[in-house]
Design a protein around this nucleic acid. Structure first.
Lengths: 102, 102
DNA sequence: AACTAGCTACGATGATCGTCGTAATTATTG
DNA sequence: CAATAATTACGACGATCATCGTAGCTAGTT
């Protein structure tokens, strides 16, 4: 199946500043909520996001480089998932508080 | 003493998006940490912040409009304090998680 | 091999924003 | 009243960034 992961920061190297910057954009926050609800997603599997797939790809990259999501490659399909466990370890309560907000 | 408060959003109207945007800037995050440590501050009482007082004023305004800080006027002196209680009510655990981060 | 689908890298553009200097305001002090 | 200190409003500039279109890549399919 040749599943590989795109490069991402180690849990200990996730920086609060980069995480906050990544979550500060409303589109990225919406993407994070959708990934949380559905357990993952990709550029073309989030049609309610009001930007083009190339822009979604850019946002997923930003989220991945910040340590918020992890992206796996399976053949020609990709899937991004929230790194909720890593974030909970690194910044306890942070992601929960944000996702719980109205 | 004629203490008055500058306009600020009600606790129920604080938006997570604006709070995250306000905290995403590294200078503003530093200001928030200093206000937390010292219980308050003003434009000229935060010399370790590497920007000019006029810029600190701008950041304090951004933080106040987002609902992160409250600013009081006493004569010619002003003092801004963290709205930690309001934030804890509105987004439980959020500020604590951020301030606890290394 | 050719073709299709999914995704991204790249370049460009327009908007937002962080920063600063200056001027103006306000209140306290001499 | 004059002077000083604290703070902000304003205008301007430079940088960052969100967005898009297109081209190119990879893997699976026919």
């Amino acid at each position: 199946m040749d599943t590989e992961w795109l490069p991402q920061p180690d849990p200990a190297e996730i920086e609060i500043g980069k995480v906050l910057h990544a979550l500060a954009d409303p589109i990225r926050l919406q993407i994070v909520r959708l990934l949380d609800e559905r357990g993952g997603g990709s550029c073309t599997s989030l049609p309610e996001v009001p930007v083009k797939p190339s822009t979604v790809s850019h946002h997923l990259r930003t989220l991945r480089e910040a340590g918020v999501v992890a992206s796996m490659v399976q053949g020609n399909a990709r899937k991004s998932v929230l790194r909720d466990a890593d974030l909970e370890t690194r910044f306890p309560g942070l992601l929960t508080a944000i996702l719980r907000a109205t």
